[in-house]
Amino acid sequence: MGHRFWDDEESLLPSRFGNGQMADAKLGQWLFLLACAVTLLKAAGVPVEITYVQSAVAKGAGEKLNANMLITGGGWCNNVTTCVGRKNTRLGSSKQMLKAIAFSGILSNRKMFNPDFYNWNRIKVRYCDGASFTGDVAAVNPGSARNLPPSCTSKLRPGLCFFPQYMASQIRTRIFFVNAAYDSWQIKNILAPGVADPHGTWNECKLDIKNCSPTQLKAMQDFRVQFLSAIGGMTGCPLKGMFIDSCYAHCQTEMQETWLMADSPVLNKTHQLEQ
């Protein structure tokens, strides 16, 4: 029996070759992919231009607003060399940032993609000081301790007041934490960074957790337990909330695919983050 290879043109013309079912299936696959692509394009969001704020008061930030403020991250620089190394990147200077970025996910202004916050004031605070927003432009080595809350530094070493389990309790503004218990960035760069794994035994595991050994999975599960223990002190406060999932992911709220899609899980008619 001879074999024939179908190309795209043939799949769109089933009656011509007398095998309509196979061609219809092929056409259906293409239409499905096209529909997915269109949906993602619609969900991408409208570009929002960057705003340089010289004074928060001048912009009316002191007024009561129904606002959703997203604080971005970007890691730390820990000495003059690493801080200077950032100065020509978006993590070291606002001059190097994109002048317009798309607001999607939790920042989307479309109800179908962000039903809970689409009509809120949506603010994304960009990050470029390498010191968790405590840096000082007057010096490369700013001595961030003086910009940390005294309510924390008076009780603990200033270095500890950079960490959420010690810092979050000092925050008086309403705040909601969304994070993965198996945060992929933390596992790759904190639990098993390359410098601590010279033989690369974690490389395949970090790329795909299906490749992890039982020992590596146990280490990740222990990491999760430590994480949950660290944030446990913030429960019970009416001004603070959290959603911690078990995804192997990072930065979930800004991506439409992990914030809200048509097939997202639903709990009591409320959409959840993708699991």
Rank of each mutant, 00 (worst) to 15 (best):
H3P: 06
R4G: 09
R4Q: 12
W6R: 05
E10M: 15
L12Y: 09
P14W: 03
S15P: 01
R16L: 14
N19A: 11
A23W: 00
D24V: 11
K26Q: 10
W30Q: 14
W30D: 14
F32S: 13
F32V: 12
L33G: 02
A35P: 08
A37E: 08
V38Q: 12
V38H: 10
T39W: 15
L41C: 14
K42F: 06
G45I: 11
V48M: 07
E49P: 10
T51E: 14
Y52T: 09
V53Q: 07
V53L: 08
A56Y: 10
A58R: 08
G60V: 02
A61E: 04
G62E: 06
A67I: 02
M69L: 11
I71E: 02
I71Y: 08
T72I: 03
T72Y: 04
W76E: 00
C77Y: 01
C77H: 00
N79S: 09
V80R: 15
T82Q: 12
R86P: 05
K87A: 13
T89I: 06
R90G: 08
S94L: 07
K95I: 06
L98T: 06
L98P: 11
K99Q: 12
K99F: 04
A100G: 02
A102K: 14
A102M: 07
G105A: 00
L107T: 00
S108Y: 00
K111W: 02
M112V: 05
F113C: 01
F117A: 06
W120G: 02
I123H: 06
I123C: 09
R126S: 11
Y127A: 00
D129H: 02
G130C: 03
G130Y: 03
S132K: 05
P149C: 03
P150S: 10
T153I: 02
L156G: 05
R157P: 05
R157K: 15
C161Y: 02
F163Q: 12
Y166W: 10
Y166T: 03
S169D: 12
A181D: 09
Y182Q: 01
Q186G: 04
I187L: 07
I190G: 03
I190L: 13
L191R: 01
A192W: 03
G194K: 10
A196L: 15
H199Y: 13
T201K: 13
N203H: 07
D208K: 08
I209C: 08
I209H: 04
K210R: 15
P214Y: 08
M220N: 03
Q221W: 07
D222Y: 12
V225G: 07
V225E: 14
F227I: 00
S229Y: 09
G232T: 05
C237H: 15
G241Y: 04
Q252W: 03
M255P: 06
A262Y: 12
S264T: 11
P265M: 04
L267G: 04
K269C: 15
K269H: 14
H271D: 10
H271E: 14
Q272K: 08
L273Q: 02
E274K: 15
Q275S: 15
